[in-house]
Design a protein around this nucleic acid. Structure first.
Length: 279
DNA sequence: AAGAAGTCCTGGGCGC
DNA sequence: TGCGCCCAGGACTTCT
């Protein structure tokens, strides 16, 4: 499921392969994936625009176009965005196609129709639906231990759910939330507001370390995710808890066995030995 | 205002 | 072989 490292990998790949190209034309086959615009408006507003920059905020890709508008892309669970190699057929569940000036097609594939595309004014991005409620990007320099401490303080919810709430720190999803908690030895049910300054600092450092490592390995592929080159990531081989129920903890000198629980209907994995329950 | 619960989406895996 | 059930999870809506 594309979380920050997966979206960042797609961003880097697209920056290499499509930056500077012109979108000759664009088609949306499914209006449900469009936020606040029709398929006709989508086609008209993108035709002839050059791709001048590709940025990212949280899990949202921000494709800056000539003329001052930005195309926002949220892959959600099953979304893929990559340029189709020449001569290859458009895959099943393609919801939108961007015809590029070098003859290739950039395809937005989305089996579960959860992904979203939005067009917004580049200098009013904060008002865009896909970005409006978003907090600070997990890798942003604006995020320091003091800010994280202040974000944690008003919330009694458990850390696992706090980490998934994009209005605090943006970019984490279900896989990395479990991985991060394991690597800083915090039980997923620890109430967010019980972390002291030291624990908040450790949490922030772990978030950065895990995300950067996952970016280095080009993201985690569990089912649908592919990079901007259309191939799977590698970080799934390095997961320590996610998807490892019943298996031995990978920590040195730990004999724990990974347990799966659920929070708000989502799987959570942890090691009861490394991550003892909060007192 | 925080937080909990319900909802949406659909391919794939499973049991029978 | 085919049918029906359930699961995956990101984010939004609704309710307390």
């Amino acid at each position: 499921m594309p979380e920050l490292p997966e979206v960042e990998t797609v961003r880097r790949d697209l920056a290499e392969s499509v930056l500077g190209l012109v979108i000759d034309s664009a088609e949306a086959y499914d209006e449900m994936i469009l936020v606040g615009l029709t398929a006709g408006q989508f086609a008209r507003r993108l035709a002839g625009k050059q791709i001048v920059d590709i940025r990212r905020s949280g899990k949202v890709l921000i494709i800056e176009l000539s003329g001052g508008e930005c195309l926002l892309v949220h892959l959600r669970m099953t979304g893929r965005l990559y340029p189709l190699p020449m001569g290859q057929a458009v895959p099943d569940h393609t919801r939108a196609v961007f015809h590029l000036s070098d003859g290739r097609k950039l395809v937005f594939v989305n089996p579960r129709r959860l992904g979203r595309l939005e067009i917004a004014d580049c200098d009013r991005l904060a008002e865009a639906k896909l970005l409006r409620k978003m907090g600070i990007d997990a890798l942003s320099e604006e995020l320091d231990e003091q800010v994280v401490g202040e974000m944690l303080r008003p919330h009694s919810i458990v850390l696992k759910q706090w980490l998934l709430d994009q209005s605090h720190i943006a970019g984490l999803g279900n896989i990395y939330a479990s991985e991060i908690l394991h690597r800083c030895r915090l039980h997923p049910d620890t109430p967010a507001n019980t972390l002291d300054a030291r624990a908040a600092r450790k949490l922030l450092r772990t978030i950065r370390r895990v995300l950067e490592e996952a970016i280095k390995w080009r993201g985690t592929t569990v089912s649908d995710y592919v990079t901007g080159r259309g191939v799977p990531g590698e970080f799934q081989k390095r997961l320590r808890v996610y998807g490892r129920e019943g298996k031995r903890c990978r920590c040195r000198n730990c004999s724990g066995v990974i347990v799966r629980t659920t929070h708000a209907g989502r799987s959570t994995y942890y090691c009861p030995q490394c991550q003892p329950a909060a007192r």
